[in-house]
Simulated assay, not measured.
Amino acid sequence: NLVPLLVPLFVSAFRRADELAMAMEARCYRGGYNRTKMRQAVITTADKVAYLLMILFLAGSIASRFIHILV
């Protein structure tokens, strides 16, 4: 009973794997050699200033809507 379900599943999985392999070859992917390393993100002072400015802008835009409604 499972054969009609499993055959299309495996066919699509192999087709997807083949397409992925061809795409990787087209982009000259070579595993392990000159791969990029994942780095830990560090929050700097510039990031904190940007967060503060965004929060102030958001608070100002919300406040201006309430002030506009009250007037």
Rank of each mutant, 00 (worst) to 15 (best):
V11R: 06
F14I: 12
V3R: 13
R65L: 15
I55H: 03
T36Y: 05
A50W: 01
L70C: 13
V42R: 07
E19K: 11
Y29D: 04
P8Q: 01
L20P: 00
K37Y: 05
S64G: 09
L56M: 11
R27E: 10
G32H: 01
K48Y: 00
R39K: 14
D47F: 00
L52S: 12
R39S: 08
R35A: 07
V71G: 15
L56Q: 05
G60H: 02
A23Y: 02
M22Y: 03
T45E: 15
L53G: 02
A41D: 03
T36Q: 11
V71P: 09
G32P: 00
S12W: 04
N1E: 08
A13I: 11
T44K: 09
R30W: 02
A13W: 08
V49D: 02
V42F: 03
V71Q: 14
A63D: 06
V3N: 05
L2I: 12
V49P: 00
R27P: 00
L56F: 10
A41Q: 03
Y33L: 15
T45V: 13
V11G: 00
Y33K: 14
V71Y: 14
G31P: 05
P8T: 04
S64F: 14
S61Y: 09
M24I: 05
L70F: 14
I55S: 02
D47V: 00
R30Q: 15
A59V: 11
L70N: 13
H68R: 15
I67V: 15
R35Y: 03
M38L: 12
C28V: 09
R35W: 04
K37E: 12
D18Q: 04
G60I: 02
T36N: 08
Y33M: 12
D47N: 13
M38A: 09
L70M: 15
T36H: 05
R27F: 01
M24C: 06
N34T: 02
S12C: 05
F66T: 13
L58A: 13
G31M: 03
R16V: 03
A63H: 13
A59T: 10
L9T: 13
S61T: 15
A26G: 06
L52E: 09
I69T: 14
F14Y: 07
I43Y: 01
V71E: 09
R35K: 05
Y33C: 06
I67D: 04
N34A: 08
A17K: 06
Q40A: 08
F14Q: 06
V7G: 00
Q40C: 05
A21M: 04
R15N: 04
P4T: 02
G60P: 00
M38E: 05
A41Y: 13
L20D: 11
A63P: 00
L9V: 06
A63I: 10
V11D: 02
L9Q: 12
G60C: 10
V7F: 01
A59G: 14
M24E: 10
K48Q: 10
D18R: 07
A41T: 06
Y33W: 13
